[in-house]
Amino acid sequence: MGAVVEITDLVRDFRVKRGETRRAVDGLSLTVEQGELYGLLGPNGAGKTTTIKILMTVLLPTSGSVRISGRDVVADRRAISREIGVILGGDRGLYDRLSARDNLRYFADLYGLDHRTRQRRIPELLDRVGLADRAGDRVETFSRGMRQRLHIARGLLHDPRLVIMDEPSNGLDPVAGRELRRLVRDLADGGRTVLLTTHYMQEAETLCDRIAVIDHGRKVYEGTAQGLKSATEGRQVTAIETYGAEEDRLSAIRALDGVDVVNLVEQQGRQVLYIQAAVGQDPTAAALTLLAGLPVGRIAVSEPTLEDAYVRLVSGAPALSVAVAP
């Protein structure tokens, strides 16, 4: 074992206008060990993608140190680029009018693969990601899931030691998402180090050996998904389906005795209020009184999930037993 990624006191500022900067990453430190599947979680704008771009050497840090396999990402950029395979989520990053095979050929040449290795790796990877029968088709005819699989093949062409994935399952349908998770798990089981960012708690819970939650560019949690979940022990979540709840009512519910967090999720034209509170301090009756006049649907009480623990962490609720590693 040994650290593959070592980030120490990383800071990255962006100039927003003359004389004014916004800090996207604020003193972040973390370590990813060899063979580990490490998840970076956080709300939009938390600094995940900025961190990933610094790791992939397309963005310079403002201060701090980032090392991959002991090499500095600024000083040893070229050597590092051979060590990492970057898999970005989304539709872009491929040549749409070229076939899947031609895309891989081009990127194999970019990484200096010799002819024999290239001829072996491309069909092997296309087969592994399930695109062997579409190898000669133009990428513009591919679905989002197929593009994502091609991204994975592209990122693995040069057999990198570290695989970095930025929101790999973003926008995928459930079947494609499950297939992608299987591929990611296979990578880690094969001994590769994987660092991924994700919005999906279930993905983090089922895949990652360890996770870090970052918010406003700072690490607010590092440990296992189970560890984060255990921070909500002694809590329960009441879900109330409603429609048209305004901020005033939500603030009033937040102020109820024993209520820690209120999270509002819009789902297919309706709202679901998730109210976290201590077991034994059931807020349902009081919340329903505050929602008087609004349509109310199903009400369910359950144990908190990882997502509830995460929401609690990034919503600024009072800290429970969540540990932040140094």
């Binding site: 771009k53 992939m56 050497t57 397309v58 070229r78 050597a79 680029s81 051979r82 970057v86 970005l88 989304g90 539709d91 872009r92 990053g93 491929l94 040549y95 749409d96 990127f107 970019l110 990484y111 200096g112």
Partner: peptide
């Protein structure tokens, strides 16, 4: 196309890319 970052992140000198 979103390929520029990938090209810059590759080990190939940009002039050759």
């Amino acid at each position: 196309m979103g390929t520029l970052e990938g090209l810059v992140a590759s080990p190939m000198p940009l002039i050759l890319v």
